[in-house]
């Protein structure tokens, strides 16, 4: 039996009385890109934060059969969060040096190649605080990719990226998959999800509504495209009609 890279079962995340994620379960295998789709506030980011141990939760999260990704196990993950998680008072070079040092990764050529691929050379001596949103996102991407993690966790990773960098990143994700790496991918952009993801889980109000390959999902909800399937799955089609008619 092939071992999973990530297995999430019965995940529950609460913020006080509010339940953000309610009994969510899914697995991601090696060489698989799993897309987590859902409307705003569906619980995608909370799920990702729980996996990374950034919020308290109940349920199980297992990384490569070794338990919850904590401490040194986090070295098997590269994460790009919705808001780039960076230390703003460091320069780009200082931050990348810190990440490499903490990850005990000293393949400088790899880091330089990534810096070059995302055109960050000219910003190496710039404080992260004064970078544009797109460049901050690139720094977060380089720091997530540098150590060749087994699992990439990407929350809206194409936010603010320019077209060239987005293409470079898509190629890198494809190579990562080809090399047996797994990806948990959260996005609002259906076209990207359709092109990149092997399997998709659509969540709404913290619960899994439908899961499978794009074709399976479209078949399950009788829709002609992923966008239609998504809207049907979250019961938004009728609502959209009513809303637009009222305008």
């Amino acid at each position: 039996m092939e071992q999973h890279v990530l297995a999430v079962s019965n995940l529950v995340v609460k913020y006080g009385e509010k339940v953000a994620v309610s009994g969510l379960s899914f697995t991601i295998g090696p060489g698989e890109i799993y897309g987590l789709l859902g409307p705003n506030g569906a619980g995608k980011t909370s799920t990702i934060r729980a996996i990374l141990g950034l919020v308290n939760f109940t349920g199980d999260v297992d990384l490569l059969g070794q338990g919850r990704p904590r401490g040194t196990l986090l070295n098997m993950i590269g994460a790009v969060l919705e808001t780039p998680a960076l230390l703003e008072t460091l320069t780009v070079k200082e931050f990348l040096e810190l990440v490499a040092s903490v990850r005990r990764f000293n393949d400088v050529k790899r880091i330089e190649a990534l810096v070059h691929a995302f055109e960050l050379e000219q910003y190496m001596g710039t404080y992260i605080a004064s970078l544009s949103q797109g460049n901050k996102q690139k720094v977060a991407i380089v720091s997530a990719l540098m150590h060749r993690p087994k699992l990439l966790i990407l929350d809206e990773p194409f936010n603010a990226l320019d077209v060239k960098s987005a293409r470079v990143f898509k190629e890198i994700i494809a190579n990562h998959k080809r090399d047996g790496g797994a990806v948990l991918f959260s996005t609002h952009i259906m076209e990207i999800a359709e092109k990149l993801c092997d399997r998709i889980g659509i969540i709404d109000r913290g619960k899994m509504v439908v899961e499978g390959t794009t074709a399976q999902i479209m078949e399950q909800v009788h829709a002609g495209s992923l966008e239609d399937a998504f809207l049907k799955a979250i019961h938004a089609e009728e609502e959209i009609k009513e809303l637009t008619e009222a305008l």
């Binding site: 990374l52 196990l73 808001t83 703003e88």
Partner: peptide, 10 residues
Amino acid sequence: RGALAIRIMP
């Protein structure tokens, strides 16, 4: 500041 960045490191 940047607590999130440090907490996703191993």
